[in-house]
């Protein structure tokens, strides 16, 4: 017996940080930068969101610190790959390694704990209750979410508008498609790339803040692969914001499906594989079907041609 409403509700909650990271990743992808450092950006922001909230005793200061941490990591990343021409893959992977080690290490000097730090529950991200939403059947799942979750759902639309209806977005797309042409057209491609990466960092910062402050704690490694999930979602969506909304929701809902099925006795390992199996199928199946149907069309066209010829 499947509880579709709570499946969707949990899916939305689970997809929110992934969506934020994905939107950031999408901006980088638009200027043809394949950013594998999303985990590092987000984990660093998780840590500093907690530091900010705890030190300033205010959850919104935490969000701000998270965003700043994301931007800082993005600055380092962009300087290294755009200015110093470091291989982007290696730079990204080493940022991930560095951030994991650094956040784990910093827990001792800053909080005098190891492994995790739990804050008082007053520093949790507050949820907003929109009264009338409860009465609408499906949309009611959107009720009682934090403002960052709502932002994550609105961002695809905002980015769609910015990317396809503003000059800034146009510059981004041109830079990504053909950098020489963009330069010839007078676009400052370097500035565009930097801006895209800094926005990427800021959005990952929001994601990190959402992840950490909704459970008002930091745990070593708490991003748990969400950065790579977001990357996969964006690549699956062909870097289109609205399609990316769909693919992120697909990941969120399939994860919530595996949570819902967790008590039915199936192997927890196979259940954990569900989101990835779904993503793989979503990536490969449409193309395979198209390939097969193209082949069939080709074969039937050949058969018709042979029949015509022999008549």
């Amino acid at each position: 017996m499947m509880d579709w409403i709570s499946l969707l509700e949990l899916g939305v909650r689970h997809a929110a940080p992934i969506l934020l990271i994905a939107m950031g990743c999408l901006l980088a992808q638009k200027v043809s930068i394949f950013n594998l450092a999303l985990e590092g950006f987000t984990l660093f922001s998780c840590f500093f969101a907690v530091v900010g909230a705890f030190v300033f005793k205010n959850v919104w200061m935490g969000v701000l610190c998270g965003v700043l941490a994301g931007v800082l990591t993005a600055v380092i990343y962009s300087v290294f790959i755009l200015q110093l021409q470091v291989n982007p893959v290696i730079c990204a992977l080493s940022i991930n390694t560095l951030v994991t080690g650094l956040t784990r290490y910093l827990l001792k000097p800053i909080f005098n704990t190891s492994g995790r730090f739990v804050m008082p529950s007053e520093l949790a991200l507050p949820t907003i209750h929109i009264g009338f939403l409860d009465s609408i059947p499906v949309v009611s799942v959107l009720n009682n979410k934090s403002v960052l979750v709502y932002l994550s759902l609105l961002l695809p639309f905002i980015l769609y508008y910015v990317l396809f209806h503003t000059e800034f977005g146009l510059n981004m797309r041109i830079t990504g498609l053909n950098e020489e042409a963009a330069l010839a057209a007078g676009v400052n491609t370097k500035k565009v790339k930097y801006t895209a990466l800094l926005l990427n960092g800021a959005l990952c910062g929001l994601a990190g803040a959402e992840l950490a402050l909704s459970v008002y704690m930091f745990n070593v490694g708490m991003t748990n692969g969400r950065g790579f999930t977001a990357l996969a979602a964006v690549t699956l969506a062909g870097a289109h914001p609205l399609v990316a909304l769909g693919t992120c929701m697909l990941f969120g809902v399939s994860e919530s499906l595996s949570i819902q099925l967790s008590t039915s006795g199936y192997s927890a390992y196979l259940l954990g594989a569900i989101p990835y199996a779904m993503a793989l199928t979503a990536a490969l199946l449409p193309r395979i079907i198209r390939l097969v149907s193209n082949n069939m069309k080709k074969k039937s066209a050949e058969r018709q041609a042979i029949e015509l010829h022999s008549n």
Partner: peptide, 23 residues
């Protein structure tokens, strides 16, 4: 042959085979 980005397929395969191996 299918025009799908190999990084997505690769990363998903990594996770998938890890879970299958664990199972």
């Amino acid at each position: 042959k299918l025009g799908v980005n190999e990084v997505v397929v690769g990363v998903m395969l990594n996770y998938l085979t890890k879970f299958i191996c664990q199972h």
